[in-house]
Simulated scan of single mutants.
Amino acid sequence: MTAQSSHSTDPGWDLSFLWVGAAVTAVAAGVGAGVTGVIGGWSDAVGVLVGAALVTAFFVVSGVVVAWAGRINDAFTLPAALGAFFVKALVLFAILDALPEEGWLDRLTLAWAVIGGALLWSGIQLRWVWTRQLYYVQPPAPPRADVGAARPDPEKPGPRG
């Protein structure tokens, strides 16, 4: 019979930064859309909101894809990240190209919102990594305190005695 270790081999891919990023982006997009709507018009405000939604969706997709690849094998994370980036760039270019030049949404404002949102999310991820205790290698399992483990009894003589 083998004892099961309480130590998990799961690398612990933490995706909780996605909630923080989404919350910060929602606040920034709300404020940005309000200011932009007053200054530049409501089609610009919609551009800010759509840009924030796109960036949030793209970072969520990247986080999930990289975490999924990392759970399979750490060596898959870089190809997964690069592949996801390539697909997201194609989708973004297709979206921007499909929008009419003079429509209900200002493409230039949308593009700037995407750039600002990407910088915001990058800052959120950087701070998240800097404030977390991350290990280069998986730490060893803590020693187990088995209740029925054989311990030497000081009152009983040992094998030599």
Rank of each mutant, 00 (worst) to 15 (best):
F17P: 01
D10I: 02
P142M: 11
F58H: 09
G117H: 06
D106H: 12
V50G: 03
V114W: 01
W128E: 00
V35N: 02
R144N: 09
G37L: 03
V46H: 03
V61W: 06
A29L: 04
V114G: 02
G116V: 02
G83D: 14
Y136S: 15
I124R: 07
V48M: 11
P152H: 07
K88T: 14
D97I: 02
F58V: 09
G116N: 06
V87Y: 07
G41T: 09
D146W: 14
W42C: 02
G51C: 05
T77V: 14
G158P: 02
G70K: 06
V87D: 06
P143W: 04
E101A: 10
A23V: 08
L134R: 15
V38M: 07
E102T: 10
V129Y: 15
N73P: 04
W128L: 03
G40Y: 11
A29C: 07
I95M: 12
P143L: 12
A23Y: 03
I115S: 10
S8R: 06
S62K: 08
G34S: 07
V129L: 15
V50T: 08
R151Q: 11
L120A: 12
L110Y: 00
T131I: 09
V137Y: 02
L99M: 11
P154N: 04
A33G: 09
P140T: 10
Y136M: 13
V60K: 00
V61K: 01
A84H: 04
G63V: 09
S122A: 15
P142A: 14
D97G: 08
A75F: 11
L54C: 13
I39S: 05
W68A: 14
G116A: 12
G148S: 13
A57M: 11
D97K: 07
P152T: 10
A22D: 00
D74W: 02
G158Q: 11
G161R: 12
G70Q: 05
G41P: 10
G47E: 02
F58A: 15
D97M: 04
V114S: 03
R127S: 14
A94P: 01
L78D: 12
A75S: 15
G30W: 05
T36V: 13
R107N: 07
D153W: 11
T56D: 04
D10P: 04
G123V: 08
T25E: 05
P154R: 09
A89N: 08
G30E: 05
A23D: 00
V55I: 13
R151N: 07
P152M: 08
L120F: 10
A57K: 00
R107K: 15
A94Q: 08
D146Q: 11
L105P: 03
L92V: 14
A33V: 00
G40T: 01
W112I: 00
K156G: 01
